[in-house]
Write a protein that binds this DNA or RNA. Sequence first.
RNA 1: GCGCCCGUAGCUCAGCUGGAUAGAGCAACGGAUUUCUAAUCCGUAGGUCACAGGUUCGAAUCCUGUCGGGCGUACCA
Length: 586
Amino acid sequence: MKTPIELISQRITDAIQKVTGQNIPAIVTAATDPRFGDYQSNSALSLAKQLKTNPRQLAEKIIANLQIEDVCQTPEIAGAGFINLRLKPEFIKNYLTEIKNDTENFGIEKSETSKTVVVDFSGPNIAKQMHVGHLRSTIIGDCICRMLSQAGWNVIPQNHIGDWGTQFGMLIAYFKLEWPYVDEDYSQVEINDLEQFYKSAKQRFDNDENFVAVAHQQVRRLHQSDPITMEQWKNIVDESRKHYQPIYETLGINLTVKDERGESFYRDKLADVVNDLKKVELAVESEGAICVFPEGFKTKEGNPMPFIIQKTDGAFLYATTDLAALRFRINELKANEIIYVTDARQKQHFEMLFKVAEMAGWVKDTKLVHVTFGSVLGEDGKPLKTRSGENIKLKELLDEAVKRAKQVVEQKNPELADSEKDSIARAVGIGAVKYADYSNNRTSDYIFSFDKMLAMDGNTAPYMQYAYARVKSIGRKGQEKGIDTAKELKGLKEIFINEPAEFELAKQLIRYSEAFSTAIADFKPNFLTAYLYDLAGKFSAFYNACPVLDAEPKTRASRLLLCNLTAQIIRHGLENLLGIKIIDRM
RNA sequence: GCGCCCGUAGCUCAGCUGGAUAGAGCAACGGAUUUCUAAUCCGUAGGUCACAGGUUCGAAUCCUGUCGGGCGUACCA
């Protein structure tokens, strides 16, 4: 179903066609001020410039040819040639009815069926704990997948885990020498141990020549797929997964082992990448390394900048792996679009990657997109670290958020059962971290603050969850009073709304699909949170102004519908699109 | 040096395919509760949109330059 903006836009486009004879898509936006109505079109202004005519007169001609009486009241022209539009109550009511019946999508169209998109995100390193640096890629990537699925795409998430490289040879060698028992039973090893072993191994590698030799031998065995070594490697990966998979579950991230295609997956495709690029004479030797020089990139000396795909010592790099993965996704996964979700610092790398792939003729019709994001900063405005300068572990960060949320629950609702307090604290704490991230502009850095994200006022998860809980509370209260809300909704024949607060809420409800459209257009979750926050605000205003359960029966059923749709859309937005839990009571 | 990103209220941030009087939240101040969760709502105050030019009927938004901050820039990912 079309969004109100699309609907109005189409009508005005038709009118413009009649006036000018040209098919020029109309510009329609939400009104910048309630006094101007609900929507406005500035098409006459920009069009008048092109046609060298008077914008006001053009606006009048457009209106004269505009068929929109089923949607809006008589359009008005204001200022230099703005066309102001006010929705008819009948239209709002009809649209509400349609959304009510569209119980899966609430007006959002599934427009992109039969197209496949690969989304590359999260990408934790094996044998290391996830830290704050993984937060944004993981949750933004997940949100992008959710939005694309909602839009009808066939979504293939790809978790490009860091599971291959010389460090694994080193780690295995270290186990052999220092902790042989590990080989017998990896289940005793936790991620903390792996991380510690990794550090110790690295230290020994830097100081002990004999160890270097053993480590290199293990690396060779890995590369030769020696069964025993591979088994040891696999154990390390499996144990690491036991660390990050629960974090995904905590965060509500839809990533599982089936989405993993890490660096190891591409290991036997790397030589082909280099050879194929050599064959077409894109890859050449330079200062001992094999490089491609994509057009338009310069080093600080002003020379062409290399995209290095094989080091002097013969080893491949992540550039090589990325090329192999890109080719796999196009040729094997049949991607129409590939989206990479990484921090903005890798921008140049992906620009070069895409350029090289294009120059090699691998890309064909596939759209390549790098979705970037800013850094998570501490209260001091510097990248978030521990006092000793280490990365903050993601698990510890999330635990802390839940702990703080629990304190709030204890304070606000001490009478609840412990188990309920815990589940509320999890939903609020984790939700707060995610929501705070989503509500900031993706491309900006943002300052991480538990106090701000857990605040009950403002654009936060707790505020949203509270709004939802209040709607649910009306249902419970109604039940106590013998009001069957489900039955009332079913029996609702005609929507009856009158109060300004009801209309404000209703108009917000029918705009959900518009918010979705703007959010997915640039993969900007903050458009979704902004919409939901507005919705919750309008609901709260309605809640204060309009009694539901004590209203006249006719009014009551319609208000219950507004409540129900508010709850449904908050739930859909929070849970389905953002992966944030809602709670019935808090 | 070159490239990319950023600079909006005291603080944290929206808004940027040009559009009407630049918006929220926090903090400050003033109100609202016999009523469905006050983890709420309403109001007041707060701005040279870093600065200077330019394009335009119109610029926070586009262009150029300056200042300030961040990031990247040959074998890490």
